[in-house]
Amino acid sequence: MRKAGIGAIDKKRLMEARLKDHGEEIAAEQLKQLSTSLETFRVKLQEFAMKHKNEIRKDPEFRRQFQEMCASIGVDPLASSKGFWSDMLGIGDFYYELGVQIVEICMANNHKNGGIMPLEELFHRLVKSKGSTASQGLATDDVLRAIEKLKILGNGFSIIQLDRGRILIQSVPGELSLDQNQVIKAAQQNASITLLELKVKLGWQEDRSRKILNDMVAGGLAWIDTQTGASNSDILYWFPSLFNANINTL
């Protein structure tokens, strides 16, 4: 039962103040606990780094495992170059350098493919530019992780998933529309497509197909080939980003 009057109010105030004091104590206690816990962790990480630094640099499987575990506990070892992980394991440099090389390769090829490149081609070009010894332990998983990191620099990079595990890397701003995505998927097999094929495969009206394809030509994603036939529905639209030949002629 609560009593009325000034005495009761005073009592309540006192109680609140005490609770607050207590809360502060707990928070300070926890912060202290965190800092000791952090210190033990740092020592552990140091030990780990001394023993396994090379493995993490050389073995892509080990690296993948490491990244997955970090993700599962809600930690991003690549977030800051100043963090423990980068500092002691040197894992940051590996990915950041990869990022720089990815940007350079994509920029150098933008005029050819309109800013879209298959992951395999990017990977091959990376291996070529790094040299065979330096790229011995490189996996496509690493490339994708490095690209994920680049995204925050202003919607420049995105990853496009195609059927059968094929992946395209887009290195220019502006996401592909849903329709454009479908066109690329439909054109995957031959790296090219006609209005007629789009009608068969996606059931699109000619107007819709032509609009999408012309947009893609204007954006540099597709090339027109009129030599195959006289009628409009025979015009071939080629997608340089899907050329397998790009890889073989490297």
């Binding site: 350098e97 925050i152 620099l153």
Partner: peptide, 25 residues
């Protein structure tokens, strides 16, 4: 200059102890 370019140039200039995209931003 785009920030992607900035990121490349900063890290190319450093050579070692590279910085992350987040840090640049």
């Amino acid at each position: 200059m785009t920030l992607t370019d900035v990121y490349c140039r900063v890290n190319r200039a450093r050579g070692l102890e590279l910085v992350s995209p987040e840090d640049v931003l």
